[in-house]
């Protein structure tokens, strides 16, 4: 890379950084007359060589997540004025980073990662919805604090190396600005998963440090539909009827959320 190229990249990096730092606090997105690209990104968990969790009868998590994601895509496109982008449409390997990048590159208003659960316990059952826990180590907190304190003096002052480091951490923590809305999204979806036709145990909403959620710059949740490690739930998960019901529940949860926070 030439010197001028390098400095241009550095300047762009600094601009991105400044924008990120100065981003407004996470208030509910205002209805701005539909000016935004209305995109929902659905992430069918695993794929390709990464088969995910396996059932006793041989079902694979990656196949079920894709089947439900495709059904959900259909429901949203038929009923809502939203564009739907899947992080994979086929049985493909996609890195966790690229999955979050699909959301950010499409300026998504909502990100939903779909999984089937697996446990050491054979009788573990039920559905749960997660949003990110900010399990930042002291080191990260310190770096973020440093960044916030010095954001005004950022441009051109810090070394390229330090900038890379800081940019990486910022992107890594992009979800931090959307935690409240993500919690609401998780709540609305979990409410619907708990409705009668499905009849799955309600494990509630939880927080955990999911890699795929950390870099997503919009409200984002991860749904564990049921346990593929439970022979009983595995049998449900592979049925068309159950997959349709789950997709419908996820759809209704999304609609509820969008009513609360119109985009």
């Amino acid at each position: 890379m030439s010197r001028s190229q390098h400095s241009r990249v550095a300047a762009a990096g600094a601009a991105v950084l400044a924008a990120l730092v100065l981003l407004p606090a996470p208030v509910p997105a205002a209805a701005d007359g539909g000016q935004k690209t209305r995109t929902i990104v659905i992430d069918p968990g695993h794929g390709g060589l990464d088969v995910g969790a396996k059932g006793k009868f041989g079902s694979l998590e990656k196949d079920i997540t894709l089947a439900v994601a495709l059904r959900l895509k259909g429901l949203i496109e038929q009923n809502l004025a939203y564009r739907v982008v899947l992080t994979r449409e086929k049985d493909l390997d996609v890195s966790l980073e690229n999955r979050s990048a699909v959301a950010n590159n499409n300026d998504a208003g909502l990100f939903l990662s779909i999984h089937t659960n697996g446990s050491f316990r054979k009788n573990a059952q039920g559905a749960e919805t997660f949003f990110l826990s900010l399990n930042a180590s002291d080191e990260e907190t310190r770096k973020l604090a440093y960044l916030e304190n010095s954001s005004a003096a950022l441009e051109g002052r810090i070394s390229a190396e330090a900038k890379d480091d800081v940019t990486m951490i910022l992107w890594d923590m992009a979800q931090a600005a959307h935690i409240r809305q993500s919690a609401r999204l998780a709540e609305e979806i979990q409410k619907e998963l708990n409705q009668p036709p499905l009849g799955i145990e309600n494990r509630g909403i939880k927080q955990a440090p999911f890699k795929v959620l950390t870099g997503v710059a919009c409200p984002a949740v991860l749904v564990e539909m049921a346990f593929i490690s439970s022979p009983e739930e595995e049998q449900k998960l592979i049925k068309d009827e159950f997959q349709n019901q789950i997709a419908q529940a996820l759809f209704r949860g999304i609609v509820r959320y969008l009513r609360l926070f119109p985009q």
């Binding site: 969790a53 659960n117 697996g118 316990r121 180590s137 002291d138 955990a208």
Partner: peptide, 26 residues
């Protein structure tokens, strides 16, 4: 010294792991 414990397990931790969020969490 900074309070981080580095724990290195053999490949079996991954190769023989049942996978799934609950199992990983445990």
């Amino acid at each position: 010294k900074n309070g981080t414990a580095y724990v290195d397990f053999s490949r079996d931790l991954v190769a023989r792991h049942p996978s799934g969020t609950s199992a990983e969490t445990a």
